[in-house]
Simulated scan of single mutants.
Amino acid sequence: MGGHRPDSRDFGPRINDRIRITPIRLIDDAGEMIGVIELDEARKMAQEKGLDLVEIAADSRPPVVKMMDYGRFKYESAKKERANKVRNKVSEMKEVRLGRSMKIDPHDVGIRVAQARRFLIEGHRVQIVQNFRGREMAHRHKGEDRMDDIITSLADLAKVEMAPRLNGRRLTMVMVPERQKIEAWKRKMIAEGKPILPSVPEMMDEMEDDDDDDE
């Protein structure tokens, strides 16, 4: 029946030869109630359709049994469970620091932005931090300008959840991935034969290529 053999390690519902009580209340594979019939008759019906008998309400009297392809049922159930885990997974907050002060090389800023892109593609929220030292606080607008540039650089993947906010000598903002944009970016990478999660240097090359296209 359905090619599914009972396994002593299977702690799921009783199926096929593991069902012993007769009569049973049978439901067919379309969900229609057949009614109360003898177990042997139900087995013959299931065999004719190449399906399994699965006990879905063991405590009922008579027990309720349904005809189905149990192997396919287990596969679909596991698939749905994995999908639910992915949907319900709370994204982790990643922090990207733009050095200890405003005196960070533009190339190093590019590395930090590439790291942020990778985190966003992985589905994480990203907190970006710009620190100020000494007299840099008098020119904090430069830090705000840098944050605006980063927002523009990441706009193809994410949106701003928390706008740049000054707290002491730290300017912080939070960006969150946008699913549709991430999926579009992944399709683009696949079409171009590039890895979906490239290394940071590869990510920087991609960003530079995009800048060249804009010129």
Rank of each mutant, 00 (worst) to 15 (best):
G2W: 05
R5H: 12
S8V: 12
R9F: 15
G12Y: 06
R14V: 01
R18N: 07
R20H: 12
T22V: 07
R25N: 15
R25D: 15
L26T: 10
V36W: 02
V36A: 00
I37F: 07
I37G: 03
E38P: 12
D40H: 11
A42R: 01
A42N: 00
M45S: 02
M45D: 00
E48M: 14
L53S: 08
V54M: 06
V54C: 11
V54E: 06
I56R: 00
A58R: 15
D59K: 11
R61L: 15
P62Q: 04
P63E: 10
M68C: 05
D69E: 14
R72T: 09
F73A: 11
Y75Q: 15
E76H: 02
A78T: 13
K79L: 08
E81C: 07
A83R: 00
A83L: 06
K85D: 01
N88P: 03
V96E: 14
V96N: 11
V96G: 07
R97W: 04
L98S: 05
G99L: 03
G99D: 02
R100G: 14
R100S: 13
R100E: 11
M102G: 05
M102P: 08
K103I: 14
K103S: 13
D105K: 03
D105C: 02
D108K: 08
A116T: 09
R117L: 05
R118C: 04
L120W: 05
E122K: 07
G123W: 03
I128E: 02
I128N: 08
I128Y: 06
V129W: 07
Q130R: 14
N131W: 15
R133H: 10
R135N: 14
E136C: 03
H139I: 13
H139N: 10
H139V: 04
M147C: 05
S153Q: 15
S153T: 01
L154Y: 00
D156I: 12
L157H: 01
K159Y: 01
V160A: 05
V160K: 01
A163E: 12
A163C: 06
R165H: 09
N167T: 08
G168C: 13
R169G: 03
R170D: 10
L171C: 14
V174P: 02
P177M: 04
E178Y: 07
E178K: 13
Q180S: 09
Q180C: 03
Q180V: 12
K181T: 09
I182Y: 04
A184P: 02
W185E: 14
R187G: 07
K188F: 00
M189G: 05
A191P: 08
P195N: 10
P195V: 04
L197C: 00
S199N: 06
V200Q: 00
P201R: 02
P201Q: 00
E202N: 05
M203G: 03
D205I: 02
D205V: 10
D209W: 09
D211C: 00
D212P: 01
D214M: 06
D214G: 02
